[in-house]
């Protein structure tokens, strides 16, 4: 298949990892943190005193050379996992992260069995 080859070739251009600039990283981190004193707002969107403080702390930590993950774990240590909008993969979140895939495969299985049972083959 000529087209398939070309497609694969073209696609190899894309196989490069995604990177954020420092500035963008900052906003990404803001957005992934819950503003604890607000009703379901993230740090980036909130105007509250708490959010302002956390923002400056994040900026400081990034300047100190911490990476995204280290900033999260620093804040989670102080405020608990409740502050993270993306729950880290650990004992209490395996089900959360893996169940969707199990359901997806289960759905495929049910669909497959249903179709197997009820398919009419052309004579």
């Amino acid at each position: 298949m000529k087209y398939t080859k070309i497609l694969i070739l073209l696609f190899s251009f894309f196989i490069l990892s995604h990177s954020y600039s420092d500035e963008k990283m900052k906003y990404k981190i803001y957005k992934n943190l819950r503003c604890l004193v607000c009703q379901g707002q993230n740090i980036g969107d909130s105007n509250s005193e708490f959010a302002q403080t956390i923002k400056t702390v994040i900026n400081d930590k990034l300047d100190e050379g911490l990476n995204e993950r280290e900033v999260y774990s620093f804040l989670a240590e102080k405020y608990g996992d409740w502050i993270l909008y993306k729950p880290p993969l650990k004992n209490n979140s395996y089900v959360l992260w893996l169940l969707p895939y199990v359901i997806f495969i289960l759905g495929a299985l049910i669909l497959f069995i249903f179709l197997r049972k009820n398919t009419i083959h052309k004579k």
């Binding site: 996992d81 409740w82 993306k86």
Partner: peptide
């Protein structure tokens, strides 16, 4: 549904509080 209910269920079962937000 899982994302919405998981924190509630987890809190009842184990008293741990987590947030499930947009990244999930």
């Amino acid at each position: 549904l899982i994302g919405t209910l998981y924190p509630i269920v987890l809190e009842v079962i184990s008293e741990q509080k987590i947030s499930v937000g947009p990244p999930y």
